[in-house]
Design a protein around this nucleic acid. Structure first.
Length: 720
DNA sequence: CCTTCCACTTAGGAAAAAGGGC
DNA sequence: GCCCTTTTTCCTAAGTGGAAGG
């Protein structure tokens, strides 16, 4: 209960402060000298970061759950309204007026020629290939020539969309056809001999109620079913779905016995594991048939993979961290909940027999194929394309180009925020320090959140309680100790020496504040981004993460790779560079369950190898002696053989040791996220080409698909 | 201005598949 | 081929940020 109240208080404080207080914006007589130069390299190495996840405070039961949401669901109808517009005016190929004009303003800025021209000069060699001519022709004929193109697209010799010109920012496609989402199978009732018990008595439940019970029973051996919040949410949602009779009888969760059902599912999964090869094969074929049918769409005549063509099955919501909604029932999605988006003249996907779609629309300013409202938060969810698609790939490319533009601009931005540190206005100082954190520490923006979700923060939402100021610590001056839960309730823990002026400002910011007050009470992400956007079009807080990540990778690779390294060593270097980024971005993972064990195994292996080397060396010595005492062809050969053996073993040892280091350093670091989302793939591709490392060693199949554009266009000279 | 909505990217864990030693 | 580990893929939650609405 306490937590809830604190949150409430916090909100009130912030909003109270808002109008009057903010306008007055305390005048500061900034007599502070601007402090010394900023080194780009003084980023913390992050070594002390990884204390793993934190289990914060006591669980909180969400009593008045419906209160907040009911209102907003009303407003959500506006969604309908807007898209209805689109439908009305979507008569011809052209974009709906209203949507288009609204978005145009923004587009103008962004459509600056920068994108492709720059790419081409820095990225790939510019050649007028035949495919390019083709591409141009394609574009022209796109509207009327769809039929022909469809066939070509299905043959799918990989669409090199990156060789075509940049496409419109507003209009995402001109034709889109798909099969609609795949619905998960219906619920299969339990066999008669498997029963739910209440208060010791067997009880037959209605199918709907029983299904919900199975959700809970399946997760019984998971830790969160023991949490009070989880149980409360579950029980209250469950009761809602019970029949009257059931509700009358079932009064307490603690009297419910799911163990037989639980056991049943454990056995079932065991069975699945023990299936024969043939059975598994059948299943596999079934899955690929499904993929074939539902997994692709036809976008502008090209067959593109869909990211998530299967609708999310019903179940119990499992938020991350201390989520107030954990355990709530996630309902089964009905066709009547689903909106379809496709082109007007395409074959409209058929809803399951006896059902209809909520709506079918033809809005080509969005990229999604289907959407529905998820019932836990009442937010929309979408079916969208796979990262290998043009729509995603082009956006990704664009993202890295924006980050590269920041690279050119970052010095002046740094100058500016340093000036802000001594501004007379509180809000400028706060903004200056916030941007400094975002730049230096790659913090996330930190939008405001409602309290229907876990209490996590980013830069702008940091609270006083999340930092500790140390005048000096461990021989360093002006150290800020950060300790907070970020996205996904991953703990960010870091001790960072900052510049004196920042330190002073922080002291000022926390003066007369309670721990649960906002550290930056005069700024929001919106204002911050507005400022950034004025510095550089397209610049927002998140660009800094991309920029810093890619810059770090590039620097580290340049630093860590030398000629004459073996491929394995180069890969270790790459991983280390990747790791530096992951640490910067605080990408963590739970230590693998078997980490200690497998580490030990590896060490044993290493030990054995060492012994083998000793042995081989001894033999080598003997051979040497023998050769010296009585030189002969045979003895010489033997000597060479032994030398080679020693050498071979040493190499193997080295490889193992490399592996050991790599694994040890990677214990709680997740490399995947940065690789997939923050590192300009052209850096990696260029590095591979330059150092003769096969790109497959760096990117697996999925990654190669996603980054096909970069792999194809990048030469070894690319620098971020 | 603030709040809400919407669409999109970014995220870690679970499940499934692949790899490798016997 | 089997068993165990490691890697990949799948899943969907949780962010960001632009725009609408009031």
């Amino acid at each position: 209960m306490k937590l809830e109240k604190e949150k409430q208080d916090r909100r009130e404080k912030k909003s109270k402060r808002s109008s009057k207080d903010r306008e007055k914006d305390s005048e500061l007589n900034g007599k502070h000298k601007p402090s010394s130069k900023m080194k780009q390299s003084d980023r913390p190495s992050g070594v002390s970061r990884n204390d793993g996840q934190q289990k914060p405070g006591s669980p909180e039961i969400n009593k008045n759950k419906e209160k907040t949401r009911s209102k907003s669901s009303k407003q959500r109808h506006s969604h309908k309204q807007r898209t209805a517009d689109v439908k009305l005016c979507g008569e011809d190929e052209n974009l709906c007026e209203s949507v288009q004009t609204r978005k145009k303003k923004r587009v103008k800025d962004e459509e600056s020629p920068e994108k492709h021209d720059k790419n081409q000069s820095s990225g790939r060699k510019r050649k007028k290939t035949s495919s390019e001519h083709k591409a141009e022709k394609n574009k022209k004929t796109k509207k009327d020539g769809d039929q022909k193109e469809k066939k070509k697209g299905e043959e799918s010799d990989k669409w090199k969309w990156w060789e075509e010109g940049k496409s419109s920012d507003t209009q995402k496609w001109s034709s889109l056809e798909h099969k609609g989402p795949y619905f998960p199978p219906e619920y299969e009732p339990l066999p008669d001999n498997i029963c739910f018990y209440y208060d010791g008595q067997p009880m037959k439940l209605s199918p709907a109620t029983e299904e919900i019970v199975t959700f809970y029973a399946k997760m019984l051996d998971h830790e969160y079913t023991s949490k009070e919040v989880f149980q409360c949410n579950f029980f209250s949602d469950w009761k809602e779905e019970m029949t009257k009779e059931e509700r009358k009888l079932i009064k307490m969760l603690s009297k419910c016995d799911f163990s037989q059902i639980h056991k049943y599912f454990v056995e079932k999964s065991e069975e699945r594991k023990n299936m024969t090869k043939e059975e598994k094969q059948v299943l596999k074929e079934e899955a690929s048939r499904l993929m074939e049918e539902y997994g692709f769409c036809l976008l502008d005549g090209h067959r593109e993979k869909i990211g998530n063509f299967k609708l999310e099955p019903p179940g119990l919501f499992r938020g991350r961290g201390e989520h107030p909604k954990m355990g709530k029932l996630k309902k089964r999605i009905q066709p009547e909940d689903v909106t379809i988006n496709c082109s007007q003249d395409s074959k409209i996907p058929a809803p399951p027999a006896g059902h209809r779609w909520k709506r079918v629309q033809h809005d080509n300013t969005v990229t999604w194929l289907a959407s529905w409202l998820e019932n836990i938060h009442g937010r929309p969810k979408y079916i969208m394309l796979n990262p290998s698609s043009k729509l995603k790939g082009e956006k990704d490319w664009q993202k890295y180009e924006t980050a590269r533009r920041l690279k050119m601009k970052v010095d002046s931005i740094r100058k500016q925020y340093r000036r802000d540190w001594t501004s007379r206005e509180m809000k400028s100082r706060q903004r200056g320090v916030a941007i400094y954190f975002i730049d230096k520490l790659a913090l996330r923006a930190g939008n405001e959140k409602d309290d229907e979700s876990a209490d996590t923060v980013g830069c702008c939402s940091l609270r006083v309680e999340h930092i500790t100021l140390h005048r000096r610590l461990d021989g360093q001056e002006h150290v800020v100790e950060f300790d907070f839960l970020g996205k996904d309730s991953i703990r960010y823990y870091n001790k960072v020496p900052v510049e004196k002026q920042v330190f002073k400002n922080l002291k000022l910011f926390i003066k007369h504040k309670d721990p649960e007050d906002d550290l930056f009470d005069r700024i929001t992400t919106v204002k911050l981004n507005k400022t950034l956007n004025e510095c550089m079009p397209g610049l927002t807080a998140k660009v800094f993460r991309t920029f810093n990540a890619s810059t770090t990778l590039q620097d580290q690779l340049n630093k860590l790779t030398t000629e004459g390294m073996t491929v394995e060593e180069k890969i270790l270097s790459y991983n280390r560079a990747n790791r530096a980024v992951a640490i910067l971005c605080n990408h963590q993972r739970a230590a693998p369950k078997t980490f200690e064990k497998s580490m030990q195994l590896l060490q044993e292996k290493i030990q054995k190898k060492k012994e083998q080397i000793e042995e081989a060396k001894k033999e080598l010595k003997e051979a040497k002696k023998a050769h010296k005492d009585a030189p002969s062809d045979k003895s010489k050969k033997l000597l060479e053989k032994k030398e080679k053996a020693v050498q071979r073993l040493s190499e193997q040892l080295k490889k193992l040791q490399l592996q050991e280091t790599d694994r040890e350093e990677n214990k709680v670091i997740a490399l995947g996220t940065s690789k997939l989302n923050y590192l300009d793939p052209r850096i990696s591709v260029a590095w591979c080409k330059k150092h003769q490392v096969p790109v497959e060693k760096i990117y697996n199949k999925t990654q190669r698909d996603k980054f096909a554009w970069a792999i194809d266009m990048t030469d070894e000279n690319f620098q971020f």
